[in-house]
Write a protein that binds this DNA or RNA. Structure first.
Lengths: 188, 188
DNA sequence: GGTTGCGGACTGAACGTTCAGTCCGCTTCC
DNA sequence: GGAAGCGGACTGAACGTTCAGTCCGCAACC
């Protein structure tokens, strides 16, 4: 049988509350109320609040990766693959503000500080390899991987942040321009 | 007379604790201890903890702006001015990890959510005008200001984040490459 | 079919802890 | 002597977590 309804209700309520009020601004009492369960029930499904946060992160990341990296054609040119992936990533961030805010928060928090798996391993793996291959083929600049990653992710994340935190309206054209320009920054 | 020593000691201790442990992870008791004052003294200088955080933010921002925007020659070409400003900004973030972490945290927190002045007004003003002028002159792409800002700030912030949160070593060459590439992304 | 017994998911009042903020006595300075 | 600056024990509120008890579906038995 699949995950129980209660567990899913708790994770959904947690996503909303954490994204809107932060980890510390969302007490377990409120969380339980929003999920429609008793406070004690939280502790049937999760060891403690930290465990809940970590599980939620894993779920959200999984979901994001699914949407961003499915069916990326391996044969098409690198630039096309890059634009497909980055467009999907930006669109995911724009369409899922709760997930975006939550992930940003998690990334910065002490939770991810000590962990290895905080940099989405497979996610980065894919784009990571793509960037390395592009550098190998001298399509993009001969710079350290970290610089290339900053040039790729930076603009996308910055735009998503303005959209989610400052209500900046973002249309399809802006998405296209941003992804394309980030590619221009990478190439020579 | 200038700001009292106690006040400055409190702000310095707060900067360190907030950057390392977050707003919620830094209790007033610990803050007072680190500053070498009694708990009560905090409330002589600040209405409450929120007031302290807001004041600290203003101070940090002022300091950053001072360092980044002083003596930008008005006559030099736009590209040179851009590179000067962005290099200084990135270097400020790299050399002041506490300030960077604190500002990032503040930006995301509910403090800045409702405020207008969270986007450093004058800071953005300057770069903001520079980008508008560059677009006017068709030096950079004909895209909405928000897109141009994302292309300018994004890579710089992303690199600083990797440096400060993941201990990525960043040398002068990487700074140069990142700033230059961000310009490449802006231009056509 | 009706009654009884049982297991475990579930609840929420209660607990101990921790926090931001207060209060009052002590010190310092004029 | 009075005012201002200061310290830290203290307070009430809010938090995460616990646990004794409730509830309900199902199996066993008559």
């Amino acid at each position: 049988m699949q995950q129980s309804d209660k567990r899913r209700a708790i994770l959904q309520a947690a996503l909303e509350l954490f994204a809107e009020q932060g980890f510390h601004g969302a007490p377990t009492s409120q969380l339980a109320q929003k999920a429609g369960v008793g406070v004690g029930t939280l502790y049937r499904y999760f060891k403690d609040k930290d465990d809940l946060i970590r599980d939620l992160y894993r779920m959200v990341r999984e979901d994001a990766m699914q949407q961003i990296f499915t069916e990326v054609p391996g044969q098409t040119p690198i630039q096309e693959r890059y634009q497909l992936i980055m467009t999907r990533m930006l669109q995911f961030f724009l369409k899922n503000p709760l997930q975006f805010r939550f992930m940003e928060q998690y990334y910065f928090s002490p939770f991810s500080a000590g962990e290895q798996d905080c940099e989405p391993p497979e996610t980065h793996e894919t784009l990571h390899r793509l960037l390395l291959a592009a550098r190998e083929e001298r399509i993009v600049k001969q710079a350290p991987l970290a610089v290339l990653q900053a040039l790729a992710y930076g603009p996308i994340v910055a735009l998503a942040k303005e959209h989610n935190n400052r209500n900046l309206p973002v249309d399809e054209e802006m998405v296209r321009q941003t992804v394309e320009a980030s590619w221009d920054g990478l190439t020579r």
